[in-house]
Simulated scan of single mutants.
Amino acid sequence: MKPPPLGSYVVDLTSARVGRVVAKVGRLLRLTPVGGGREWNADEGDVRPATASERLSAATAYVNARSRGELP
């Protein structure tokens, strides 16, 4: 499978988290969560493209957490 391009949204299959690809070194991808936050690494073999529904769900979860005061 072709590696995801920088800026694309993917699902990390090991954690079921949606993130945006911000860097790539070898097979290692650096992902940042929707809405910002702590970045994490994932192997390019452990991700798949995120659907529009998954991106919307992740964005909604971020906005809801922020409105509850759980995020800065």
Rank of each mutant, 00 (worst) to 15 (best):
A16E: 14
S53N: 07
G69T: 02
G69M: 08
E44F: 09
V47F: 03
S15D: 06
V18I: 15
P3S: 10
G69D: 00
G45S: 05
P33R: 00
N64T: 12
G19M: 14
V10Y: 02
V10R: 03
V11M: 06
L56D: 00
N64E: 15
A59P: 01
V11I: 14
E44I: 12
P5L: 15
P33W: 09
P49R: 06
D43Q: 06
Y9L: 11
E44C: 14
V63R: 13
A65F: 07
V25S: 06
R48Q: 04
A58M: 05
G37W: 10
V47P: 00
G36P: 04
T51H: 03
P33E: 09
V10S: 03
W40R: 02
L28D: 11
S53D: 10
R68S: 04
N41A: 06
K2S: 10
R68D: 02
V11C: 08
K2E: 10
P33H: 09
G7W: 07
S53T: 15
G7P: 13
S8F: 03
D46H: 05
K24P: 00
L28T: 13
S57A: 14
P4W: 02
V34K: 04
R27P: 13
R27L: 12
E39G: 13
N64D: 10
R38H: 09
V10N: 05
A65Q: 11
D43T: 09
V10E: 01
N41H: 06
R38M: 15
R48P: 00
R38K: 14
P72L: 06
R30M: 08
L56F: 05
S67P: 04
P33G: 00
V11T: 05
T32G: 09
D43K: 08
G37V: 12
E39F: 07
G26S: 08
A52K: 02
R27M: 10
P33M: 07
D43R: 04
L28N: 02
A50V: 15
V18L: 14
V34R: 00
G35C: 01
D12S: 13
G69H: 00
R17Q: 14
T60Y: 07
R68T: 08
G36H: 12
A58T: 02
G19R: 06
P3T: 12
R30E: 01
G35Q: 11
V22I: 10
D43S: 15
V63N: 03
P5W: 11
N41G: 02
P3M: 12
V47L: 10
G35N: 07
K24L: 06
D43M: 12
A52H: 01
E39H: 13
K2G: 10
T32Y: 04
N41S: 09
A16R: 14
P72R: 10
E54V: 07
A65E: 08
A16M: 14
V22N: 03
A42T: 05
V63K: 11
V25E: 11
A65M: 02
A65R: 11
V10Q: 05
T51L: 08
L29V: 05
V22C: 07
V63M: 12
V22W: 03
G35A: 06
E39M: 14
R66Q: 07
P4H: 13
R38L: 06
G45C: 02
A52R: 04
L56H: 09
D46L: 11
L29G: 03
P72S: 11
E44K: 01
A59L: 04
